[in-house]
Amino acid sequence: MQNYTSQDDPYLLPRQSLDKDISEDISERIVGAILFACALVSVLTTFGIVIIIFQETFGFFQEVSFAQFFLDTKWTPLFAERHFGIWPLINGTFLTTAIAMSVAIPLGLCSAIYLSEYAQPKVAAVLRPAVELLAGVPTVVYGYFALLFLTPLLRNFIPLEIFNSLSAGVMMGIMITPTVGSISLDAIKSVPRSLREGAYALGITKLETIFKVVLPAALSGIIASIILGISRAVGETMTVLIAAGLQPKLTISFAESIATMTAYMAQISGGDSPRGSLNFKTLYAVGAVLFVITLSLNIVSYWIANRYKEKYE
């Protein structure tokens, strides 16, 4: 009886090769299962957070009506005369956010334009990590820097309270600049070189090319970076807690002390309010509003990035 080998029959796979393919297939399946489990943990964690927040929020609204929460203009849940109007906290949050973005947008966008269009490669390689290093500074450091340095400095020129939204907003803007600048820089760099060369061929100057060709082409990424920066500003805690104070009020004055949603949540989280009490439940009610705001901003950012994305061959 004649024995066949792989050399005699090219269509006969060696057993070792077949075992290797089976082993690789099993390894791929195991790795895929592990990655799926990691993704599932993230999704389940998100759902768990949402369920807990809105479960406690439901308990809050069993004791406080929607009218008291959304129509009242005072927020004093810790006082003897209680008011649960959320608008002073929303006002403080968006006031500091507006100040922060008025600083972060020009600084971030100008730094992105410079690093992309004007800086030499060696200079850009040094400056970009230096700018992004600002994102690694703890926010509590920004808060104390605003309180102990920026506020006394600004009070030499502007009448400000010790705790005020201006110092907190300016410091938040510096903190958010790397977020806006980094994403905007990637969006500007993704614009094809051919568009710039076409503009130069028509006799347009470099500055005109940037503002009339490059920035419009990268607009979706720039807008997405701005909205993500707003989300970061809305969710910032320690900087506003230290520099802006804890006085919820409806005001547009940047010189006064205000309170944000995150600052109030940090105050309640200190442990002075017993678990299950109405004061404790306000933590989740405010957290639910903050969650809805940041989720809406992220959805808008995702929609804009996809709706106005420019595709080039």
Rank of each mutant, 00 (worst) to 15 (best):
R15W: 07
R82H: 13
S257D: 10
L241N: 01
A243E: 02
S257N: 10
Y144I: 00
A243M: 09
A217T: 08
P129T: 13
I162G: 02
L107M: 14
I52H: 13
E81W: 04
A285H: 10
V300E: 00
I183Q: 00
F145A: 12
Q68I: 05
G235N: 07
E256S: 07
E63Y: 09
A243F: 06
F211N: 13
D72C: 03
S182K: 13
I49P: 07
E313N: 12
V126N: 06
L297M: 10
C110N: 10
I223A: 14
A201Y: 10
A135R: 06
P159H: 05
N3I: 14
T73G: 04
F60N: 04
S253Q: 12
I268W: 04
I210A: 06
G85F: 05
F54M: 11
N164R: 08
L71Y: 01
A305W: 00
S231W: 08
V103T: 14
T57A: 15
L44E: 03
G59E: 10
Y144V: 00
F47L: 15
Y118C: 05
E28Y: 13
L297R: 01
E256M: 04
G287N: 11
I26Y: 14
A112C: 09
P106D: 07
G136T: 10
W87C: 02
T260F: 04
V292I: 15
V234C: 07
I226Q: 09
S111E: 00
A224L: 05
A285N: 10
M172I: 12
I86A: 10
L195V: 01
S42C: 15
T179E: 03
P152A: 04
F36P: 00
R128V: 07
G108K: 11
T97D: 04
L297D: 01
P14H: 10
P192R: 12
F84K: 03
L107V: 15
F211T: 12
I242D: 01
T262Q: 08
R307E: 05
